[in-house]
Amino acid sequence: MMAIQRICLALLMLGSLPTLAQIATFTADRTRLPEERWFDGAVAAVNQATVSAQTSATVQELLFDVGDEVPAGAVILRLVSTEQREGLNQAEAALAEARAVLAVETPNQARSKDLLGRKLIPQSEYDAASGRLNAAEARVKNAEAALKAANQRLSYTEVRAPYGGVVSARHVEIGETVHPGTPLMSGFDPGIMRVEVDIPQAVAAQVRELMAARVIAGVDKAIVPERIILFPVADPSTSTVRVRLELPLENFGLYPGQFVKAAFTTGNTERLLVPAASIVHRSEVTGVYVIRDDRPQLRQVRIGGRFGDQIEILAGLEVGERITLDPIAAGILTGAREPD
């Protein structure tokens, strides 16, 4: 005897066999829902960049690697700074020398001006003193600019993250010599993502009118974009229009390059929906228990997409028919074998 039949017999002996009145039912009806067109899309990071060297040096220390989370402004890599520090020392010495000369020429020019006023020196001597003072002031300004540049070059030996994110690639090794423009590390901010989709021109007009979409990032995981941007041009080689879906500022576990599905609303349609709990899966057969002649009868159906806790029925069920919400109880009542 089959297992379910033995259960039915035991329940019958105990007087616990469920009755049809005890089984919850649902009357099939059509619900008006948005009609959607699905397309493949690719995830991209809004903040995604490759940090490059800005000075010539040797890699001394790598503080982060691929997959590490990096705070904004953190030092991610250090370069050997011997040459840059020597340049800074020279710039500081040059500035000190220029200021010393200025300290001498300033009172000299003041004395020359006083002597000229008392007609004790010729105009040419005063002009020479003024010229030396102007030259000393110019050398100080030049030395200050050189010191600022030297400090800037030294700062280039500590490479910092422009924003917080995750390291996606490391392009150098310790001991490697780099030059201005050499890629060092790449990263992205996982909290600010978007999806880019290419849709047919015919669909683009409907999308532009309704401006509604969902990003399907997994089973039962739909993300509503905060903003939908349609590019104002089409690709003549593919006859498609690119759409950019800006996702909310939240970490959804997506990463750049990941493929997802994008569902665009193109209109409205009526769908026959039933609760997902009423669906029976038996081997390769999918069905529901339909109430006919006051008895539940298993009927094969063809299902479509899932909408929350409901599933669309494409064929096998008509509007107004009643189905059971507890297929196990219905199977016990009819003596049918349910799948494990």
Results as ranks from 00 to 15, higher is better:
P327D: 05
P236R: 02
S239C: 00
Y126S: 09
L9D: 13
A149Y: 14
N151A: 15
R299S: 12
T106I: 11
V215P: 06
K148M: 08
K141Y: 05
R32A: 03
T265A: 02
V166E: 08
A129F: 04
V166I: 15
V46R: 15
G73R: 10
G164M: 11
R227N: 14
G191S: 15
I223W: 11
R282W: 08
A161T: 10
F188S: 02
V260M: 05
Y126P: 05
C8T: 13
A3K: 09
P248I: 14
E105S: 12
E318Q: 15
F39M: 00
G73M: 13
Y289S: 05
L62R: 15
I174K: 08
L272W: 02
T240E: 01
L272K: 01
A263M: 02
S16W: 09
V290H: 01
R242G: 10
K141E: 15
A128P: 08
N108E: 15
I323R: 04
L298D: 03
G316Y: 11
G41Q: 03
S112T: 01
R160W: 09
L88S: 02
E250C: 03
R99T: 06
V241I: 13
I199L: 03
Q206S: 14
L210Q: 14
A49M: 14
A262Y: 04
A57Q: 02
G15N: 15
I291P: 02
P183H: 12
A103R: 14
D68I: 07
E209M: 08
M1N: 09
L325Y: 12
